[in-house]
């Protein structure tokens, strides 16, 4: 039995950060598993590259001609070049959300993967960090492909755009962590029907398709969308102009990611280690 004094000290610390997060040793093992699984479904991954291509092409041939140029910062950019960063951020979000919700729920409830993992030296913290890491890695792959597509279509406006990969990792990290945290509260598949009710508004109203100034007096609402902060980062990278607000953007995403991971690890421990 632990001495009472030690228990007290731990409980004060865990009020801020759950103890499980101190106990992360080998999350990479779970990533390794995901790699083996994905190796068989590589065709699926490759075909995922086509989606951004279709979207970007469609916007170029259709909407760009209708809209003309849009102002970003002080510059005028063609509409397709304006939308592309928004779509890039949105696709990072969607990928991370899908991986961390439906996929995780399946592994949790149907395949009971985490039960068998916890019987090994893996810990709840390993699982939370491992799964989120995997979602981030996949996001990294997709965003690289997205960037390549933009490059081929001539939509990359600045060399700084290399940083967009980092922004996508951040977006993926934040949404995967929060998504997985929400998944731990899901009771059945039916709960996931509400998922689009969250992701769709984020997708549409995060200054993805038009600048926040279009909202007039309501433009501050857009700031509440976590996706907006991702979009803003990538858009800034694409024109190569950064302002102080970038720090806020990054802080919001990092904050979300940390909260998500903490909640996830704690919930796994609570639900599976009974």
């Amino acid at each position: 039995m632990t001495a009472p004094a030690a228990t007290e000290r731990i409980s004060i610390a865990t009020r801020i950060i759950p103890a499980v997060l101190f106990d992360v040793r080998r999350p990479q093992r779970l990533v390794e598993r995901s790699l083996v699984v994905t190796r068989r479904g590589w065709l699926m991954v490759v075909s995922g590259f086509f989606e951004p291509l279709f979207y970007l092409l469609s916007i170029r041939v259709g909407l760009s001609a209708l809209v003309g140029d849009v102002a970003v910062g002080g510059d005028l950019v063609p509409y397709d070049e304006f939308v592309a960063p928004g779509l890039m951020a949105a696709s990072a979000m969607n990928g991370a959300v899908f991986d961390s919700t439906m996929n995780v729920f399946h592994k949790w409830k149907q395949a009971r993967l985490y039960d068998s993992l916890l019987a090994t030296p893996m810990s709840a913290g390993d699982i939370a960090v491992g799964e989120v890491t995997w979602a981030v890695i996949r996001g990294l792959l997709y965003s690289t492909a997205f960037l390549a597509t933009m490059l081929v279509l001539g939509m990359v406006g600045s060399l700084w755009m290399v940083l967009s990969i980092g922004a996508c990792v951040l977006i993926g990290f934040a949404f995967a962590a929060v998504g997985m945290a929400c998944t731990t509260f899901a009771r059945s598949w039916a709960d996931f029907d509400y998922l689009p009710a969250v992701t769709l508004p984020l997708f549409l109203f995060s200054a993805t398709f038009y600048p926040p100034s279009s909202y007039g007096d309501w433009s501050w609402v857009v700031q509440l969308s976590p996706l907006y902060h991702g979009v803003a980062l990538i858009r800034a990278a694409n024109v190569g102009e950064f302002s102080a607000s970038v720090i806020v953007n990054i802080a919001v995403l990092v904050g979300l990611a940390l909260v998500g991971i903490a909640v996830t690890a704690r919930r796994i421990e609570k639900l599976l280690l009974t």
Partner: peptide, 9 residues
């Protein structure tokens, strides 16, 4: 949203 942009086009 996009409409506002298009109609200015």
């Amino acid at each position: 949203g996009v409409g506002a942009l298009v109609d200015q086009g």
